[in-house]
Nucleic acid binder design. Structure first.
Length: 404
DNA sequence: TGGGGTTAT
DNA sequence: ATAACCC
């Protein structure tokens, strides 16, 4: 109830709206578009008309929480409200509230720079994502009450397909009310998409959405591959038929830690144990069981900073079975596996310098309660084509079918 | 740049 | 297993 959403793009405007208020408005069938939205007269603003009476048009709400981590912290500790607040991970201020932004603090700013800009800045440590993750899923579950078709993007964004809800509202309207309805929208800005692709587009002389609209499709296909080329060119016209895909429960659980230097095997083992311990708690709460474990490292290097290496392997079935049960020691065999993966990547007889370790548990499956060979076994959704966790239901991929 | 996530190849 | 994308 207390979480504010960004009314429109993160433009730093002051009007804020409650998540609950926003959904009330959506439920009332009111058209979106806040008063402060960039209009068509603004540079880079394009306008389109929603085809009248079009049966194929959809209504999708995009709910974007405002400086999410900072909001969670201010709810946890109301004394922080009204003060400039930054959330710190290592030496970075990863996000901050609007008080802090007014004073010049930016997202992903150095702590040193931030303190220089804003000496009164209050910092809280946000390296443990537990509370953020929990609040994030609470928001998703709230939205799922309006429509089950909710797709998550990160911890702070949700897309809700409201098409059905809106269609029902429209059916209730009288014809004069219906003809009085108008809907309009806008394009926020004129920049092209992800970092890598943007660089490649720039090399082709494409720097704006309009450039992309008018570029030769054939050359674009040769340059980016048919799939990406066709998709992004349609996007440049505002055409996106991709469905809102219900996220359901997470596909993976991971914990990572970055640091200046890790250069010994014991050091690595200690860090890995910490990461794994947290993960086991999370996976235990979830109820499903991971069948794959992955270790990821980042090696120190002046260039190529984003590159990571990983090794993964199946979790032995006898370890999987111990997972839910509290009394058995599941740490020891799993740490053993992780250290084998570690030595597979890192030659421990040679000097090494790592700056990140990450452990991931994935390939999650629901418990196999049905006995093999029985009718129940073949009728249990998780063992045929679908899988369940709690009240969520989701399609399972063919790649998860090895056991079958 | 942190500490997460997803999908495509 | 990696690379790209998202937050």
């Amino acid at each position: 109830e207390q979480l504010g959403v960004e009314p429109e793009e993160e433009a730093g405007r002051d009007e804020e709206e409650d998540a609950a208020q926003a959904m009330e408005r959506a439920e009332a069938g009111e058209a979106g578009g806040s008063p402060g939205a960039p209009g068509p007269e603004e540079p880079g603003g394009l306008t389109w008309l929603v085809p009248e009476g079009s049966s194929s048009s959809r209504v999708i709400a995009h709910v974007d929480l405002d400086c999410f981590y900072a909001q969670v912290e201010m709810i946890s500790n109301p004394e922080l409200k009204g003060k400039p607040l930054g959330v710190q991970q290592k030496y970075l201020v990863v996000t901050c509230n609007y008080e802090a932004r007014k004073l010049g603090v930016k997202k992903l700013m150095n702590v040193r720079d931030a303190k220089e800009k804003c000496p009164q800045l209050v910092l809280v440590n946000g390296e443990d994502l537990t509370r953020y993750r929990e609040m994030s899923y609470k928001v998703t579950e709230l939205l799922e009450e309006f429509s089950p078709v909710v797709e998550r993007l990160g911890f702070d964004e949700n897309f809700v397909d409201l098409t059905e809800m809106v269609e029902k509202r429209l059916q209730q309207l009288q014809s004069d009310e219906l003809s009085a309805l108008t809907v309009s929208g806008h394009v926020y800005n004129n920049q092209c998409i992800g970092y890598k692709t943007a660089k490649r587009l720039e090399a082709l002389g494409i720097s704006s959405v309009h450039d992309l609209q008018t570029f030769s499709p054939k050359i674009l296909e040769k340059e980016l591959g048919i799939s990406v080329a066709q998709r992004i060119q349609k996007l440049s016209f505002g055409e996106d038929t991709s469905p809102v895909t219900p996220s359901g429960p997470p596909q993976s659980f991971s914990e990572e830690d970055s640091f200046k230097k890790c250069s010994s095997e014991v050091e690595a083992k200690n860090k890995i144990e910490e990461l794994l311990a947290s993960l086991l708690n999370r996976v235990c709460q979830d109820g499903r069981k991971p069948h794959t474990i992955r270790l990821t490292i980042r090696r120190y290097s002046s260039e190529n900073h984003c590159s990571r290496e990983s090794r993964q392997c199946p979790i032995p079935s006898h370890v999987i079975q111990k997972l839910g049960t509290g009394n058995c020691d599941v740490m020891t065999p799993m740490v053993d596996i992780l250290m084998k993966l570690f030595r597979n990547m890192v030659n421990v007889k040679m000097p090494f310098h790592l700056t990140l370790l990450s452990v991931c548990l994935c390939n999650l499956k629901v418990l196999n309660t049905a006995k093999k060979g029985t009718i129940d076994y073949y009728l249990t959704p998780s063992l045929s084509t679908t899988s369940q966790s709690g009240k969520r239901s989701f399609k399972m991929k063919d790649s998860h079918m090895e056991d079958f």
